[in-house]
């Protein structure tokens, strides 16, 4: 029973990390920036979702509101911060670290702002269905209707995303701009806008991750909560496991990470909450530096 519980918890948490990793990958592919503010942006979107829940009373309305808010924030960040960054800091000794520093700064700004605006309140988002575990043959699982719902929703979103990428012109434009921006421009694609679109999609995916991470935890929301630090680290690690450039890799990376953390906490020690992802990251980087799906050269980018 323990085993099944651990497995299901791991998969649910992992699916949320996958979403986060997807948003990191989308951003990386569109602007070659690892966005350390991604979790911060997810946090902000979740607060938007919280506002919507309290005002409108429905989680299912709040979710798209959060997604829209997240998309908007991300698009603005790309149009203002990232474009300025490319213009001003793409040469000299700072060039390699400038995007890292800028997105970290953004993370700090978002966290501090969120604390200023919502910090004092007891901010709570109630999930759409119960988080009490299913009961089978008299034993109660940790796996709950809520977790099932999260899993299904994430899967559906991923399916939609992959259809968009594989079957539509917008998807083709996104892929072409990511792989060969110059050829994309010569084909008449407005690459600048496609980049913004990539960020917006990432923002929306991050918003869903943030909303689910919150209701899947204890429902409270705080800029310094463990949930969001975990989202920050796990999104990055899952993306790296997958190779940063691959959407499928991000999904698998997230699931692998979720399962590993879940099993470590269950069978080794629950105190290893934060150090386990780090050890997993190091293991991956040592065994296969380019990630599971990454191209060999990617790591040097």
């Amino acid at each position: 029973m323990d085993f099944l519980n651990t497995l299901l918890i791991g998969i649910t948490a992992g699916s949320i990390y996958s979403l986060m990793a997807i948003s990191m990958v989308l951003v990386w592919r569109s602007t070659r920036v690892v966005n350390f503010a991604q979790a911060g942006m997810a946090l902000l979107s979740t607060y938007f979702g919280f506002e919507a829940v309290t005002k409108l009373g429905s989680f299912w309305i709040a979710l798209p509101v959060a997604m829209l808010g997240g998309a908007l924030v991300a698009a603005l960040v790309e149009m203002i911060l990232i474009r300025l960054l490319v213009k001003h800091s793409s040469s000299g000794p700072i060039a390699g670290v400038a995007p890292i520093i800028a997105t970290l700064g953004l993370l700090g700004v978002i966290r501090a702002s969120a604390s200023m605006i919502w910090g004092g309140q007891d901010v709570r988002i109630v999930g759409p269905v119960s988080n009490d575990g299913f009961t089978i043959n008299g034993t109660t699982l940790v796996f709950s209707p809520l977790k099932l719902l999260i899993l299904v929703t994430v899967l559906v979103l991923m399916l939609i995303l992959s259809l968009v990428f594989q079957k539509t012109n917008i998807g083709l434009a996104l892929r072409a701009s990511a792989y060969s921006p110059e050829i994309a421009r010569l084909s008449g694609i407005k690459v600048d806008w496609v980049r913004t679109l990539g960020w917006a999609l990432a923002g929306a995916a991050g918003a869903v991750a943030g909303m689910f991470q919150t209701v899947n935890g204890n429902g409270t929301l705080s800029p310094d909560s463990i949930e969001f630090s975990l989202l920050l680290v796990s999104g990055f690690i899952a993306a790296v496991i997958g190779g940063l450039d691959s959407l499928i890799g991000a999904v698998i990376g997230g699931l692998v990470l979720g399962l590993m953390i879940s099993f470590v906490l269950m069978y080794i020690s629950s105190g290893l909450f934060f150090i386990a992802p780090f050890v997993i990251l190091l293991l991956v980087l040592f065994i296969r530096p380019q990630g599971i799906f990454g191209a060999k050269a990617a790591r040097r980018a």
């Binding site: 690892v34 350390f36 670290v97 995007p99 680290v233 990055f236 934060f274 150090i275 780090f278 040097r300």
Partner: peptide, 15 residues
């Protein structure tokens, strides 16, 4: 290099 190193050390700082 670059973002990979940053992320790894970030995970360390948190962990």
């Amino acid at each position: 290099s670059g973002p990979y190193l940053a992320g790894t050390t970030l995970a360390l700082a948190i962990g």
